[in-house]
Design a binder for these strands. Structure first.
Length: 547
RNA sequence: GCGCCAGUAGCUCAGUCGGACAGAGCAGCGGCCUUCUAAGCCGCGGGUCGUGGGUUCGAGUCCCGCCUGGCGCGCCA
């Protein structure tokens, strides 16, 4: 439409050209400026040698009248603002109501497969608050993909070989011997949490002193892995998180996938043997240094890095359109190395998308708590859920973009739980639920189809709420495409705020007014309620009928 | 020293591929329940967008330097 106006202006000689530069049409930040705005005149001003406002006026003069617009004007430095007629919005709202779920959740991922790897905590201890951010972020991304039509695989990768797991086994053995009343030297860097004692006590209960002379660590390690995983699964269940696939390091090695990677790297001359270890050559890959892939020593064990590469190759080979990984900031360098190796192996890394989140800073009583699993100086995710509840935990973790540090003040979270934004949004839903209960009591039935509702009775304020609802689908798409789920809770807070404001005005009563008006308002209220339900469900947060 | 992320109101943070006077919540002060839920609403005060340059018609947003904080630079993961 704007293009057509530009062409007419060019033909009539009032403008020297059709816009070369790209211009955009979008809703302005300040709705007072209109429903849509374009910067076309600003973009063209320079080449035209005329002030932007003059160019805007010329273009405006060429725009054909249409009953969809109620107003077109030039504002600010030369924006052309469009205001749509109420009739336009009414028909959009009817269309949304007709389309139902396909309106709210556009199926942009139809026919595509997405894999989301997240949490991936090694079974060395209970999940901490830091893991919680990863878990909720990954799960919500998976929910967004599912909702928009992707076929999603949720995957958990963990290391069960290597040094840390040996240390875990040694820690359990020491506690086991202690429990039997023997003197045992606890490993210097061992895991000191109470849960290690619990696992050891379990071994005593099951085996008595039979493992007293067991020098192998494996039974202790295996017992720990089993017990800790049971604990992790319980916590995930509380958070409404499940996984479809678990992949681990030892299986990848057993399947020969790690050996295959090493052979391929060797074939390409990317390996070098030094100090009894096998190294990945950094120089030909553009890396700043070499990296150890196989440790020296009699066992020739791979480092964590090698199965990690094998795992990523495996993921790419499984035919996903998207391979998403959610990692903490401490893994970013390592992940870049993995990607570099994948590229060097001529693999197509286009499906890979990575979400890096910054750490959760924990404050308790004004003091920063440094989290360390080994030293057992941490707050567990379970403790956090006990304190504030699942809904608050999930909502809170999603309230910041992943690039930002998340400051979690435990006292504040507990004390202010009733004022948390999640309750604010849920309250809006509960109020709407109440309205519908009252409507039923009053015998008001929603009409069968939206075409029966007299939307022309809606006020400007009500149309305003409608406009916000109509923006929901594009918000969801932006969350999916940018991998930024934090936009959703912010949207829900804004929608709830606009609704609370509306609801509090006595003139806006939904029930107890003239029937046709009441039905029109119920139609709008229904759309708001559905929007809240869709949004909260995507976040894994309850939409309560009563509060 | 090198790399990545961040620096926006007293505090915690938004700011959607640069766009119109920079927003929200909390904290502070003052108002609003006879009528669909006051976990709500209304009003007031509060910011050199870390800093110095640059690009642009236009910069919180892009580029470069510097400062501050977090993370990483293990034969740990």
């Amino acid at each position: 439409m704007i293009d057509a106006a530009l062409v007419r202006a060019r033909v009539s000689g009032r403008l020297s050209q059709v816009a070369k530069a790209r211009f955009i049409v979008e809703p302005p930040k300040d709705p007072a400026h209109g429903d849509y705005a374009t910067n076309v005149a600003l973009v063209m001003a320079r080449d035209e040698g005329k002030p932007a406002r003059d160019v805007a006026a010329i273009i405006k003069g060429e725009l054909v009248a249409s009953d969809e617009f109620s107003e077109v004007n030039v504002g600010g430095p030369g924006f052309i603002n469009f205001r749509m007629a109420a009739k336009f919005w009414q028909s959009e709202l009817r269309r949304a109501a007709d389309a139902g779920e396909s309106f709210f959740l556009p199926k942009v991922g139809q026919g595509k497969k997405a894999q989301v790897e997240f949490l991936s905590a090694n079974p060395t201890g209970p999940l901490t608050v830091g893991h919680g951010r990863n878990a909720v972020l990954g799960d919500t991304i998976a929910r967004l993909y599912e909702a928009t039509g992707f076929e999603v695989t949720r995957e958990y990768y963990f290391n069960n070989g290597g040094r840390q797991m040996k240390l875990l086994g040694a820690s359990v053995r020491a506690r086991y011997l202690e429990a039997l009343g023997e003197k045992a030297s606890f490993p210097e860097e061992g895991y000191q949490g109470q849960y290690i004692r619990d696992i050891a006590a379990g071994l005593v209960a099951r085996h008595g002193g039979a493992l007293r002379d067991q020098t192998e660590l494996e039974p202790f390690r295996a017992a720990a892995e089993e017990a800790i995983f049971a604990d992790i699964h319980r916590t995930c269940e509380r958070l409404k998180i499940r996984f479809d696939v678990y992949t681990n390091e030892l299986d990848l090695i057993a399947q020969g996938k790690v050996a295959r990677v090493l052979a391929e790297l060797e074939r390409r001359g990317l390996l070098v043997e030094r100090d009894g270890a096998v190294w990945l050559r950094g120089e030909p890959l553009g890396l700043s240094k070499d990296e150890v892939l196989i440790r020296s020593g009699p066992d020739r064990e791979p480092t964590y890095r090698t199965p990690d590469i094998a795992y990523h190759i495996d993921k790419l080979a499984r035919g996903f359109d998207l391979v998403v990984g959610v990692f903490g900031a401490d893994h970013i360098a390592e992940h870049k190395t993995v990607i570099t190796v994948l590229k060097a192996l001529d693999l197509n890394i286009a499906p890979i998308r990575t979400v890096i989140y910054q750490f959760v800073t924990l404050t308790r009583a004004g003091q920063k708590v440094k989290m360390s699993t080994r030293k057992a100086n941490y707050v567990t995710l379970d403790e956090l859920i006990d304190e504030v509840g699942v809904d608050v935990v999930r909502f809170f973790f999603l309230l910041r973009k992943s690039d930002s540090h998340l400051d979690f003040d435990l006292e504040l979270a507990t004390r202010q739980a009733p004022e948390n934004p999640v309750f604010y949004v849920q309250y809006a839903h509960a109020r709407l639920a109440s309205v519908f209960r009252e409507a039923r009591k009053a015998g008001l039935a929603l009409p069968e189809g939206p075409e029966e509702v007299k939307l022309e009775l809606l006020s400007e304020e009500e149309i305003g709420l409608g406009k916000r609802i109509l923006r929901f689908p594009e918000l969801i798409i932006s969350c999916v495409e940018e991998l930024e789920p934090h936009r959703l809770p912010f949207y829900l807070i804004e929608l709830a705020a606009e609704f609370h404001r509306y609801y509090n005005k006595p003139v806006n009563r939904i029930i107890g007014v003239q029937t046709e008006l009441s039905r029109a308002r119920l139609f709008l209220a229904g759309l708001i309620k559905r929007t809240l339900v869709h949004g909260l469900t995507l976040l894994g947060v309850e939409a309560p009928e009563r509060m």
